[in-house]
Amino acid sequence: MADIVIDRVVKEFGSFRALKEVSLNARDGEFVALLGPSGCGKTTLLRIIAGLETQNSGRVVIGGRDVSELPPRKRGLAMVFQNYAVFPHMTVFENVAFGLRMQKTSEAEVKRKVGRSAALLHIESYLDRYPAKLSGGQRQRVAVARALAVEPAVLLMDEPLSNLDALLRLELRTELKAVLREAGTTTIYVTHDQTEAMGLADRIAVMYGGKIEQIGTPLEVYATPGTRFVGGFLGSPPMNFIRVACSEGAARIGNITLPCPVASSEMEIGLRAEDASLAPIGSGIGFDVRVVEPMGSHLLLTGSIDGQLTRIVVPPTAKVAAGERVGLTVDPSRLTWIDGATGRAVVRA
């Protein structure tokens, strides 16, 4: 088992800076998700940890050992690829055994470890088949089994579920979490799917434009986003941002007044859709409802506050109709204050 230290890693492709001095620590046994839109550098970072790309500067330290200059095979890690990369000319058994054979493990040991890994991923019944005969979900199970068979100190996963259909993704996600918890492997998991990151990770590093915007537990990142980007990227619907003007330590929004954390004229309030609730008519913040979408578990209201687009989630039983003006109450402690100029969240006193 090992911890991972990524120290000011820079990667440039020609004149394009894919990674701008990224630093990240993953504790031993921790599951860290790298989450971000495509092109944010998350896969590049993972490939640098794996040794498949070479960083322009910075270090990668795994288990106290600087592996920055080592080839992938000497880094003591395993990887699961987005397109499975299960070798088509080998049976499932040989695929799972591949890493063990490269380590010159004895035949009995190979059998035992392949058997255990296959049992974890429920692929024992097709060990002697060729990958061409397997479905996408089965292939990805093989790829995970192959990675776990070598009992790696570090496991890297590059969007392992993104090629699967939604139902299978949910099933395999739950299973992955259980399997990895049991194995106690330090895992770096790249994904652009926030539900995957939220559901699986101990901590999420949200990446954008070659930088880590924020790193924290799923709840921290969700409830107290560090930047406007993080708030807008996480959550469905994304966080609402409402421009307000602060004067004399107070901000007016609708017809209520909120205490302002800092004195700045340009502030934005980050409001999660579920953090507002309907208030008795005539009180609270005025919200003009334009569209009402019943989603089953809740109603999604799209409208505006002070002319700014806002989405609010209310219980399915609420009586709201399009075109109405309703009042909203918000819990000031659950609001995120963002400096309109820098896009960074203001730390509350």
Binding site: L52, P71, R73, F81, A85, F87, F98, M102, V150
Partner: peptide
Amino acid sequence: IPREYEEAAWVFGCTRFQ
């Protein structure tokens, strides 16, 4: 032949030639 096959082999202990 996808490059990923080779990358997987490298990660699982192969030199480039292997």
